[in-house]
């Protein structure tokens, strides 16, 4: 079982460690994300407690499954905690559905509201391609100054698995092509998003997570 340390954030902070809160909103499993940070010797807490999110120095919102699952974030008071932290400048990384939630909405669940950090809506892949988009696809890096993608060459392969996609935005730092172009990674100030799974993308993905740790 995952170690759910609701008090871990505050305790570790006293020791001077940067604590990364991995937000647990009961959608899918977080073991893979936790495991990748363990490998990087980064201190993480897997938590559903808004207080632990508020105490964290970095926040990860993983995500697999349905956009509607993000509704739990509202019910648990996590949305407010995350918004507050982003406004304070705390680095925030949304992965997969976690990145999609950074937009206002998704066709997958039109009544569920995302953070609306950027305009736009997540849409389904066109009928001409197989869906979900599963497997290793290449990144076309659009912004070489990206801090998340530091040291990642253009054309690097990363692992995707998703049925809905984020359109190209002003904050898009890497693009992917599958039934048209879409945002593979977004970045603006302290806000980061990856549609792919860095924790499942081999050494390139680990490098990105390490980059995030160092921001």
């Amino acid at each position: 079982m995952l170690a759910r340390q609701t008090n871990g954030a505050a305790a570790a902070k006293h020791e001077g460690t940067v604590v990364i809160a991995i937000v647990d909103y009961k959608a899918g499993n977080l073991a893979s994300v936790k495991k990748a940070f363990d490998h990087l010797s980064a201190e993480t807490v897997v938590t559903a407690d808004p207080a632990a999110v508020q105490a964290a120095e970095k926040i990860i919102l993983p995500g697999v499954g349905h956009f509607a699952a993000t509704k739990v974030l509202d019910d648990a008071g996590l949305r407010e905690a995350i918004i507050e932290q982003i406004e304070r400048g705390v680095p925030f990384l949304g992965i997969c559905v976690g990145m999609q939630w950074m937009l206002a909405s998704s066709e997958e669940a039109p009544d569920v509201h995302g953070l609306a950090l950027w305009p736009g809506e997540c849409s389904r892949f066109p009928s001409g391609v197989k869906s979900p988009h599963v497997g290793w696809n290449s990144l076309h890096i659009r912004n070489g100054a990206s801090r998340l993608l530091r040291g990642i060459p253009d054309g690097t392969f990363v692992y995707f698995t998703h049925s809905y996609r984020v359109p190209l935005l002003s904050s898009t730092v890497a693009e992917c092509e599958y039934g048209g172009g879409f945002s593979a990674a977004v970045e603006q100030e302290n806000m980061f998003g990856a549609q792919f799974h860095p924790e499942k993308s081999g050494s390139a993905g680990l490098r990105m997570l390490e980059n995030f740790c160092q921001i």
């Binding site: 899918g28 499993n29 697999v64 499954g65 349905h66 979900p132």
Partner: peptide, 8 residues
């Protein structure tokens, strides 16, 4: 699929 997502 409903609990862990179809991708799983």
């Amino acid at each position: 699929a409903q609990r862990f997502g179809s991708q799983a």
